[in-house]
Amino acid sequence: MIESVTVLTNPAAGPRTARATRAATARLRERGLHVTEIAGDTPDHSLELVRHTVAAGTGALVAVGGDGLVWLAWQALAQTGIPLGIVPAGTGNDLARVLHLPSDPVAAADVVADGSTRTIDLGRVRAAGRPDHWFGTVLASGFDSLVTDRANRMRRPRGRLRYNVAMVAELAHLRLLPYRITLDDDDLEMAATMVAVGNASTYGGGMRIAPDARLDDGLLDIVIVTSANRTRLLRLFPTVYRGTHVELDEVTVRRTRRVRLECPGISAYADGEPLGPLPVDVEAVPGAGVVLVPGAQPPNV
C-alpha cells in the first residue's frame, strides 16, 4: 500500500497544470497520503530533484504534466521499481492515453491512491558519447523529427499551430532519406521518409503510428514509411489516427527486440524530447517501468 508520494510539476507549464496540481494534491491528501511537492527551475534541475527523491525513497512519483515530464521521470525511475503515477495535464498525454488513465486530475489522483500497478517495458536509447535515455511511447526519426526540428527553431506561431506551419514548410523539402536499419535478424539499407520505433502505439497526441505495439511484449514495432510523394503523405496522415496506415503499400512494420538506426543529418526524438543525431541503438527492456493504473486495466495495450 502506498503511504507517501512525491508530486513532480513543471512550474513553467502554465495555469492548466497549476490547477491540475492543486486538485490532484488535495485529493491525494484527502485519501490519506503524505504528499511532497517538487518542481525544478529547469529540466536538469527537475531531474536532479527526482533522482534525489528516488535515492531517498518514496512510495511513488506522480508526474503532473505532459509527455515531456513523464519522459523526464523515466530517466530517474527506470529499473528502480518505484511506480510512476500520471496526472495528464499536457498537450499529447500519449502514455496516459495508452494506459487509459482519466483526464480529470481528481480521478487520476484516485488511481494513484488506489495503488494498482502494472509493469511495462521501456525503450532504452544509446548513442556514442551521450548518456542512455529511456522512453515509454515512440521514438521518431525522419520527416516527423525534421518537422519538430523546424518547429523548435520557430518563435511564432505558438502552440500546435507552430507544428502545422512547420509541417507545411517541411513538405516543400520532402525527400527520401538514406537509412540503414539493423534489426535482430536483418540489415536493411533503404530510402525512407521516416522510421518510428514504437514501445507503445501512439505519439503526437493520439496518432496510432504503431497500432499493434504492446507495452509488455518485450518488443519494439519498427514502422517504416517509404513514400516521398507529398499528396500520398498528406493522405496518409489522417489514417495514422485510426492506425490503418500500416495496411498501405508505402508502410512496412517489423518487430524486433533491438534496432540500430543510421541516417545522416537526422535527429531522434523520443516521447517528443530531443535525443540528438542518429545513429542510435534502441532496445526494449522488459519490466523496466512500473505505472499506477486503474484497477480494471484493459488488456492488450
Rank of each mutant, 00 (worst) to 15 (best):
L146S: 15
D114R: 10
A166F: 10
Y163P: 12
R162L: 03
D114A: 14
G206R: 01
L139W: 07
T202Q: 14
A200C: 12
R130N: 05
P102M: 02
R158A: 12
A210H: 06
I120G: 00
L215A: 09
A172W: 14
S145Y: 13
R175K: 15
M167R: 12
D186N: 11
L176A: 15
D186I: 00
R160G: 06
I120P: 02
R150S: 05
R150M: 03
V106S: 02
M154R: 12
W134F: 15
H173L: 09
V195N: 09
L139K: 06
R180K: 12
W134M: 06
A191G: 15
S145P: 14
V125Y: 06
A151C: 04
P178A: 08
Y179I: 10
R118Q: 11
I181G: 10
G159F: 05
T119S: 11
V195G: 09
L188V: 14
N152M: 10
G129D: 11
L122P: 07
A166N: 11
A191Y: 09
V125H: 00
V112H: 02
E189K: 12
I120R: 04
V138D: 10
R118K: 04
L176Q: 10
R175M: 03
W134T: 01
A210D: 09
V106Q: 12
A151Q: 01
D217W: 07
S103F: 06
L171P: 08
W134H: 09
L171T: 03
A151Y: 04
S201R: 15
D110L: 00
G115S: 06
D186A: 15
S103V: 10
A127E: 07
G198C: 02
D187M: 13
V195C: 10
L122E: 04
D121K: 03
D216I: 00
T148N: 15
A166W: 13
F143S: 07
N199T: 02
D104Q: 09
R214T: 00
M190D: 03
Y203H: 14
L183Y: 08
A172H: 13
E170D: 06
S201D: 03
D217F: 08
V165C: 05
R153E: 15
R214P: 05
D217P: 09
T148F: 08
S201G: 05
P131Q: 06
D184G: 06
N199H: 04
G123E: 09
M167Q: 11
P105D: 06
S201T: 07
V106R: 13
R124A: 07
L174D: 08
V106T: 12
R160F: 13
L177E: 15
L171H: 01
W134K: 01
P178C: 11
L176R: 10
R158F: 11
E170G: 02
V197R: 04
M207N: 00
L174K: 01
L122Y: 05
D186H: 14
P131W: 10
Y179P: 13
M207T: 06
G136R: 03
R130Y: 08
S141D: 11
V106W: 07
V111M: 07
N199L: 00
P211S: 02
P102I: 01
A192Q: 04
A191I: 00
V165D: 08
R153V: 03
D184V: 01
A107V: 01
S116Q: 05
D185Q: 14
G206I: 04
L188T: 04
A127C: 06
T182V: 15
A169R: 14
D216H: 12
G206N: 10
M154K: 02
